[in-house]
Design a protein around this nucleic acid. Structure first.
Lengths: 170, 170
DNA sequence: TGTTAATTGACAGTATACTGACGATCTAGG
DNA sequence: CCTAGATCGTCAGTATACTGTCAATTAACA
C-alpha cells in the first residue's frame, strides 16, 4: 500500500486553502468597512470596543479584551486612540489601584448612534454577492466554526462569565 | 409606513456580524498555522510568498503582490525577511533597472517541501470542528464570496494575467 | 502575618496591512 | 529626441496582532 502521494506545489492549492480564504475575506471586510465608515474615522476594532464599552460601562481593559476577543497588548493602544478622540474616558477604580475603568463620553455615545447605519451597510455589502439563502448558510457555519475553535486563539472569547465582578453575572 | 426601527446596540449584534466573524476566524487560522509550523519559523504570508515564487520563478515584487493579493508596501519587508533567512534571492533584471527578480534558493525549496505536511495539518485543523459536508459547503461559499468581492480590496487578485511578461500568458 | 502567586496595565520587539509619497526608471507621443 | 505619464521599489506614518517581560498591586495561603 503506497503512502499518500506528495501534494503538488501549486498556487491554486493556496487559493483553495481555508487560511488563505479567511485572510482574503478579512482584508475585503476591513476595506468595505473603512469605505462605508470613512466619514467617522473609526476602525472596525475601535467600533467593536466602543460597542462593548457601551454594553458594559465601567469595564476594565483586561475584561474588555475577553469580551471582544482582542489581544490585551493591542487593546492598550486602541484605548489610547479612543481616548485621544474623546470617545471614552478612564477612571481609576477606587477598590483596586491597578484597574482603570472605561466609560463612553457623550461624544462616544453620539458617534456610536450615528455610525451604526454605515456599519449595517458595510456588513450587508460583504455578503451581497451571495444569494440570500447562501448568506444564511455561510453565517451559520462561520458562527459554528468560530465558536468550536474558540480556544485555538490566544484570546478566547469570554462573553458573559468575564463580567461577574461587575455584578451582572449569575 | 414607519421607517425601519433603529437596531438595538448590543454585543450580540457584533458577534453575529460578518466582519467580526471573518476577523475572528482569521485570528484563529493564523494561530493554528503558527502552532503547526512553529518548527519552521515561517508565517502564513511568508509561506504563500514562497509558494508563489516557486510557481513563478523570476517574478518581480509588484507582480508577486498581485498573484497572492498582498499589499505591495507590505511585501517589501516580507521579501527582506525571506532573503535574510536565505530562502530567496533577488537578481537585478537585465532589461529593466527598476526590477528585481525573485528566485527560491535551495534552502527555500527545501523548507517548502518540508513544511507542506504541517501546512496541510493546519488547514485541516481549521475546519475540523465541522462535519465533512459542511466543510465543503463553507469552502465553496467562501471561494465564491472572495472571488465576487475581489475588486473590493486594495490589491485585487490577478492570478494569471499579471504574468504575461514572463512569457507564460497568452 | 508574611511570603508567594496571580492579576493588571504597560512596554519592547516582531510581523502584517494600508495610505500616501518619493526618486529612479521606462514608455509613449509629439 | 525629449517630455509627460506610468511603473517599480522604497519609505514614512498609522493601526492591528502576537510573544514575552516588567513593576505595581492584590489575593491566597502556609
Amino acid at each position: 500500500m503506497p503512502s499518500k502521494p506528495a501534494p503538488p506545489i501549486t498556487i491554486d492549492a493556496v487559493y483553495a486553502a481555508p487560511g488563505y480564504l479567511f485572510r482574503r475575506m478579512q482584508q475585503i471586510a476591513v476595506s468595505i468597512f473603512m469605505e462605508e465608515c470613512k466619514a467617522f474615522d473609526l476602525t472596525p476594532v475601535q467600533y467593536a470596543a466602543l460597542i462593548a464599552i457601551h454594553t458594559h460601562p465601567g469595564i476594565d481593559a483586561t475584561r474588555l479584551s475577553a469580551v471582544i476577543a482582542f489581544d490585551r497588548s493591542t487593546l492598550g493602544s486602541v484605548i489610547e486612540r479612543l481616548q485621544a478622540k474623546d470617545f471614552i474616558e478612564r477612571k481609576p477604580a477606587p477598590e483596586d489601584k491597578r484597574i482603570k475603568l472605561l466609560y463612553l463620553t457623550k461624544s462616544g455615545a453620539a458617534i456610536l448612534r450615528e455610525i451604526i447605519p454605515a456599519v449595517e451597510r458595510a456588513q450587508a455589502r460583504m455578503l451581497e454577492p451571495l444569494k440570500p439563502a447562501d448568506r444564511k448558510t455561510l453565517m451559520g457555519l462561520l458562527v459554528q466554526l468560530v465558536d468550536l475553535n474558540n480556544e485555538a486563539s490566544r484570546v478566547p472569547l469570554r462573553a458573559e462569565d468575564a463580567l461577574e465582578h461587575l455584578g451582572k453575572g449569575g
